[in-house]
Amino acid sequence: MMEASEREVYRAAIHGDREAFEMIIRSQSRPLFAIAYGILQNREEAEDTVQDALVKAWKSRWRVRDPEKFPAWLCMIARHCARDVFRKHRTVPLSKMPEIPGSERPQTTIIDRHLDSALASLPELHRAAISLRYFEEMDYATIENRLGLTNGSLRGILGRALASMRKQLKPALASEQS
C-alpha cells in the first residue's frame, strides 16, 4: 500500500496535474532508467527510452483508473518502449557492443566484457529485474510490483539469472581472482 500523499500525487497526475507529473518524473525516472538500461545495456539509448516512455505516459495517462497501479504502469510503458528500440536498432550482437563508438568507456576490462555478454544472454525480464535491484536497491516486493510479477516469483527469477551468469562468468572470475 502506498502512502496517502503519494497516492494523491498519482491521482492528480492522472487528472492532468502537470506539477504532480513532474514530481513523478523526478521520483520515478531512475527506476525507469534501470529497466530500460537492463533491456538495452546502453546508457544513451536507455535515457532516450525513458524520455519516450514519459511522454507516452503523459499522453495516455487517463487510461489508468487506479492511482495505486500508476508506477507499475509507467514501468510497463518503459519496458515496451525499450523492447521496441531493442528490436529496431539491435542488429549487432551485444558482445560487440564495446566497439560501437560513444557507447561505453573504451577502457572496459575483460571481466566487464564477459559480464556484458552474460547479461545479454539473459531474458529481458531477468535483466530488468537485475538492474532494478542493483541500480535502485529496491526490495523484492517493490520490484515485483513494478514488473507486474506475482508475489514471491522474483526470488526464482533472480536466482536463475544469477546462477546462469555465474556459470558463464566462472572462468573469467577465476582469472580475476588469481
Binding site: 538500461y37 535515457e47 542493483y134 541500480f135 544469477l162 546462477a163 555465474r166 562468468l169 581472482q177
Partner: peptide, 18 residues
Amino acid sequence: ESKIMNSVLEEKFANEKP
C-alpha cells in the same frame, strides 16, 4: 562464487548509474 559475482555486478552498476 555468487558473492564474488555480486560484488562485480555491484561495481559495474555503480559505474553505470545515472
